[in-house]
């Protein structure tokens, strides 16, 4: 647990955020943000998934376990899903997951969910800026992190 905090002092610490983006809308929106050169903080690491409906709860918990300071899952606007209903399932799944996260003490704002369409480059950059800001305020994630202290022991 400790290795994470002393290694990065509070001031220049940069959170690392895993972003699960659905291939048809949010990933395309991220590309459009690139094409339009909308700048946003470099903290997110995008993982392309076919649909936001593909992202399950244990994927998020496992990402937190691996040390992610923040999670963003972004899919198509309701009704736009390339696979018709994937994003509806995702919405319901995260509503329930939210309760579990509160219960186990994960601060609200660590795990975020958004809709971004293929035409919303600006909005995508905005979502990334707000999520990064929120996670920065929360500071490094400590609750679930299970780092094997290999370096520590050696």
């Amino acid at each position: 647990m400790t290795s994470k905090t002393n290694e990065t002092s509070q001031t220049n610490w940069e959170p690392k955020i895993i972003a699960f983006l659905c291939n048809w809308c949010s990933y395309a929106g991220a590309d459009l943000a690139g094409v339009s050169r909308f700048q946003y903080p470099p903290n997110i690491r995008i993982v392309r998934v076919p649909c936001s409906g593909r992202v399950s709860e244990n994927m998020i918990l496992s990402a937190l376990k691996s040390g992610a300071d923040g999670i963003l899952v972004s899919g198509c606007h309701p009704g736009d899903c390339h696979y018709i209903s994937g994003n509806y399932f995702a919405r319901r799944r995260f509503a329930l997951l939210g309760n579990l996260l509160d219960f186990i003490g994960i601060e609200p704002g660590r795990v975020n969910f958004s809709w971004v369409s293929a035409a919303e480059g600006e909005q995508f950059a905005e979502v990334v800026r707000t999520v990064t800001e929120k996670v920065k305020e929360l500071g490094p994630a400590t609750r679930l992190v299970k780092k094997i202290e290999a370096m520590q022991a050696a």
């Binding site: 998934v49 076919p50 409906g53 994937g86 799944r93």
Partner: peptide, 26 residues
């Protein structure tokens, strides 16, 4: 169509999506 909704829904990790299974993503 390979959307993976079933994979995310399955409680017993019985169904996976070729090449985009939970192992690859994790």
């Amino acid at each position: 169509k390979g959307c993976g909704a079933c994979v995310a829904g399955c409680r017993s990790d019985a169904v996976t999506l070729k090449n985009i299974g939970n192992e690859q993503i994790m």
